[in-house]
Design a protein around this nucleic acid. Structure first.
Lengths: 216, 216
DNA sequence: TAGATTGTTAATCGATTAACAATC
DNA sequence: TAGATTGTTAATCGATTAACAATC
């Protein structure tokens, strides 16, 4: 892991997929793999895979291929999966609950240390061993624990205000599930959006397209 | 809405965002908008927006801009949001429950008509007015109701088998939340993946990258 | 050594941006 | 008519693919 300079988002978004697939190979006990084999399984070109990996260094052996264990570990390190950045979750509705109990944060570079909601019906309950706190505790909590990342599982209307508040409290990284594009007002901010509605609409478009082509 | 021929995924993925933002303008009672104004709000170039829209037709008026209501409706129609494709959800765990109760399918081109799980503790319960059925009812149900799309909220291990079964039952469209890339074995299939782990890892990478640049 | 497969450079392809004529 | 803004063509930029020398 060396080079790394202005890697494009296209490359970055493929890394977790490589990682996931390599983990899978690892579990199957496979020791070595070539870029060609990988390309077939992943539906990419071998050339692209080699290009991608060489953004970070030469992990392969000429004439041999890549050692699964080693490559997997390298990509994990590139992604920073061992960092355990402290994260809090805002909004313990259905989606928030699903995220809190479903995601293995520790495998993905984070550590969930707090959950907040405003509803008295939710405050005090536990999710995945973490009790839901009153959103009014947010300030004190952040001052004490200094989380780096916030997961936003809140309605569109609340997202603008809450994200501002979180920024004031020192949070710079956001995993945003609200149907709202957090204004990228600040350059030291990273926002990763998961817009489920957009995803569903995209699927709808593609279905439509295919159905119409089918008619012709 | 006319042209439409081999639109690139880059364009398609921006459409929901346009739609979402136009809906928002509509609610605020804004009647007209120019590509330049849009570009500022969305963080894109005006040129790109005009290019994107002109894949489907000329919706603007020279010297004036776009009429919000009209453009919004056009994009809605392009996406096919009124289609109401029949969808079923497989897996009523935390995530499945969140999807079932959180998503407004009817606004996004679909209609949720069935939920399936294998756990006796879940079968019989209701989510959003739809009762959870035994997965063993799947075949009969599909033969009768002919759903077009399936939402996969199941573990990785189950995804391969279930997606095959669903294909056999005539389902061609998948919204896939399982940590598994459904093999695109068949050309008449559309798979929209939502890989939350990948998204989280990508965020981790970007945080890392920013933190390291900060140190320099 | 011969065969295989990487790392890397060069060529191609596609997507974004810029420019401007058309026109409301 | 003058000003504004689109639709569209041309130029640029970036990402993907192809090719091949390096080397295990």
């Amino acid at each position: 892991m060396a080079k790394r300079e202005n890697i494009s988002m296209s490359v970055i978004r493929r890394l977790p997929r490589y990682y996931r697939f390599l983990k899978h190979l690892q579990e199957k006990g496979i020791h070595r793999i070539s870029s060609t084999e990988l390309s077939v399984k992943l539906g990419l070109t071998a050339s692209q895979i080699r290009q991608d990996l060489n953004c970070f260094g030469g992990f392969g052996q000429q004439g041999y291929g890549y050692i699964v264990d080693q490559l997997c570990e390298e990509i994990g390190a590139i992604l920073g999966l061992e960092k355990g950045y402290k994260a809090i979750l805002i909004g313990a509705g259905n989606l928030g609950q699903a995220i809190a109990s479903h995601m293995k944060f520790q495998n993905n570079g984070f550590q969930l240390i707090g959950i907040f909601d405003s509803s008295p019906f939710k405050i005090g309950n536990s999710l995945n061993g973490i009790s839901i706190q009153d959103i009014r505790q947010l300030e004190t909590f952040c001052q004490q624990k200094q989380p780096a990342m916030a997961i936003l599982c809140i309605p569109r209307e609340a997202a603008g205000e809450i994200s501002n508040q979180l920024y004031e409290l020192g949070i710079r990284y956001f995993w945003n599930f609200s149907h709202y594009d957090i204004a990228v007002k600040y350059p030291d901010t990273v926002v990763e959006n998961v817009h489920l509605n957009d995803s569903l609409m995209t699927l709808c478009y593609r279905i439509n397209d295919l159905e119409e082509k089918g008619k012709e």
